[in-house]
Amino acid sequence: MCTSDTSAAGLDWVPASCTLPTVEQPVRVAEFDDLFASVQSAERVDPTTLRLTVPGGVEAQARDLASRESSCCSFFGFDFASAGDVLEMTVTVPPAHVAVLDAFAARAS
């Protein structure tokens, strides 16, 4: 798990089940923050689903980051759909991880 001051470090959405080494977690959060800077809209579809709309130009970055995140936090589901010049990135979690998605969504907004 992250340090006890995870919220101040921006790691409040990193769950205890994450297998990414603690020292690498702030780097991953920074990568997501970089992606989140391009979010055009964020819609909470339901408690376990978040849909982000980003420019199509960040598709490779978004897919790479989602792939790496899924390898250490396997409960995350990521789906992508191109819609013209934008990309819809849908993030899902099981009900047991809604609090993680809540924090993830807060950072994306």
Rank of each mutant, 00 (worst) to 15 (best):
R63V: 11
Q40F: 00
S109H: 08
A16D: 10
A37G: 10
L11N: 04
V91F: 01
P94Y: 07
F36E: 05
F80Q: 14
A81P: 08
T53E: 06
L52D: 10
S4D: 09
C2A: 11
P21Q: 12
E69W: 09
G84V: 15
T22L: 00
L35Q: 03
A42I: 05
T6S: 03
W13V: 12
L50P: 13
M89Y: 07
V98Y: 01
V91K: 01
A30T: 15
A99M: 04
W13C: 04
A105D: 10
V54S: 05
G84D: 14
D102G: 02
A62T: 09
V45F: 00
A16Q: 07
Q61K: 12
D64N: 08
C73Q: 15
A60Y: 11
V54T: 13
C18F: 01
D79L: 10
A30G: 14
S70L: 05
F76Y: 14
A42W: 01
L101W: 05
C72H: 13
E24G: 01
F36G: 06
D46P: 08
S41G: 09
V45W: 02
C72M: 04
S4L: 03
D79N: 15
D12Q: 07
A60P: 10
W13I: 09
G10T: 15
D12A: 09
G56C: 05
A8N: 08
A81R: 15
R107S: 02
D46W: 06
V23P: 02
S7Y: 09
L35V: 09
E43N: 13
V86T: 15
R51D: 05
S17W: 01
V100E: 11
C2M: 12
R44Y: 02
D64E: 11
V29P: 01
E31A: 06
A105S: 05
V23E: 10
A42L: 04
V86P: 04
T19K: 04
V29F: 00
F80C: 12
M89H: 13
F75Q: 14
V98D: 02
A62I: 09
T92I: 03
V45Q: 03
P21N: 11
G10D: 13
A16V: 14
V14N: 05
D33C: 00
V39K: 00
F76A: 06
T3H: 03
E59S: 14
A60C: 07
Q25Y: 04
L65P: 11
L65E: 13
S38H: 15
S17R: 07
V23K: 01
V27P: 00
T19C: 00
A60G: 12
V100W: 01
A105M: 04
A62V: 07
R51S: 11
S74C: 06
V54R: 04
D33P: 03
L101D: 14
E43Y: 03
S38N: 14
L35C: 04
A103R: 15
C18Q: 02
P47G: 11
C72T: 15
A9F: 04
A96Y: 05
D64C: 00
P21C: 02
M89L: 15
A37Q: 13
R63Q: 08
E59Q: 13
F104A: 06
A30L: 11
C72G: 03
A42Q: 06
P94E: 06
G57C: 03
R68Q: 15
L101N: 08
S109W: 02
S7F: 01
E24L: 08
A37H: 12
P26G: 00
A37K: 14
M1A: 07
A96Q: 10
D33S: 00
A30P: 10
T92M: 00
L52H: 13
C73H: 07
